[in-house]
Design a protein around this nucleic acid. Sequence first.
DNA 1: CTTGACCTTGACGCGACGTCAACGTTTTTC
DNA 2: GAAAAACGTTGACGTCGCGTCAAGGTCAAG
Lengths: 248, 248
Amino acid sequence: MRIGELAALAGVTTRAVRHYHHLGLLPEPERRANGYRHYTLRDAVELARIRRLSELGLSLEEVRDVLADDYGRELREVLAELDADLARQEDELKERRAHLAELLSRDYLSADEPISPVMASLFTALPNPPKGGLLAKERDWLAVLDTAAPVDVKIELMAVLSPMALDHAVIARVNDLYSRMDALTDPADPAIPELAERLLELFPPGIGPTDGDVLRSPFGQAFLDDLTEAQAAVIRHAFTLLRERGPE
Amino acid sequence: MRIGELAALAGVTTRAVRHYHHLGLLPEPERRANGYRHYTLRDAVELARIRRLSELGLSLEEVRDVLADDYGRELREVLAELDADLARQEDELKERRAHLAELLSRDYLSADEPISPVMASLFTALPNPPKGGLLAKERDWLAVLDTAAPVDVKIELMAVLSPMALDHAVIARVNDLYSRMDALTDPADPAIPELAERLLELFPPGIGPTDGDVLRSPFGQAFLDDLTEAQAAVIRHAFTLLRERGPE
DNA sequence: CTTGACCTTGACGCGACGTCAACGTTTTTC
DNA sequence: GAAAAACGTTGACGTCGCGTCAAGGTCAAG
């Protein structure tokens, strides 16, 4: 047989056959006088074996290992391992599809999507914040945390925020407070200390950051850089207040 | 933030961030005086978005399309499409795992494995043929057909062979016949015509190939090349007999 | 003699980065 | 204050299983 016939017989392309030769998976056969490869039935048997194994999902390297091992012992191990791997992949797929179904079932898909269901419930508690406003920025920030923060941080975060999101009085105070902060323009506005105090009052004592380190970290800096000077002043003042009463 | 901090925040590597820059997925930020990239919170938001989408299984190109489309319209389409794709993958995985479970549940895994269940049942009907013998070669040949033959060919083939495999009398005749053929050494052995006739008798009339074309094809040639001269003579004689009575 | 279907080797392309090289900068440690 | 560790920069090659040219040579049919 020539290479095209062999390939057709095994259901692969000629390129694949040559690839297997290149990898040493399938030995190079004799050549005819014209330079064409001349295959025998045994080559077809070998090739079919390679194809069956690779179709199962083994990498070509694994196929070579199995073939080199005279079959039997290793094959069983490799297949069992492969099955475990496929099971893992199946679980992953299911998780992703569940996530997708979750997303698709929601009534809206905004720029902040897709995020986790918990975070979404938090967002719906404070719907449609003014664009470019401080609250919108905090939502963005939360979305960032939602994608990559360590699990324990997320849990702690949700423990703090979830009760607040369920409390209509708190929501009203948040909306009021943030709209006042959005209105700030002068970094020396006399209302700043009061706003900082109101901000702190939103959090139960003993909860949240206890010192100003987080503000000096690169993340804190990035957050402050994103605000107007007046807004940043509120945040900084709030942390000053926090430090003052912290040790107590 | 510097690139490492941004990457850590979004849970990706710095290499990935630079890759997104290269693809135009994430805009290059300003540089600091030392040449370092300087990121803001908005970059983190963008990056988190990219990561969420790509983690769902979208290609980076699709991510770019979704991001370019101002979210909303396209996102829903793409996600639905993605879900269909994932469903397909899940089915594939299940099929492969079923195949694997089939293979692993068998009591033996020989060099001819893994093959389809139907073919395996056929092989167990004629267990342990003499190594290098004609019967072993035909098993190899069948294994090749099993991997890649068109479905209709396989169905026809099994329709012929399955009843034979279930008939103990036929099995006995096959074993006897093939051991006699294995014993042949002389291409002019006077037993050859008789053996050819016995071979033909195994197949019900009207079943199987009706002319010698298959023998002159590259596959037939490869098959004959694999046999001893005497064995090939039997096959050729059988096809001669077939042609003689064929038209009738 | 041409056409078309095969064959040959060699090389680049894909996708989403990992990894190394070769170098400059900043921070930490002794 | 110097050295080391830990960052940053660009550039380029490697991964995996082939697909897909490029630039030819071979062969049977019309």
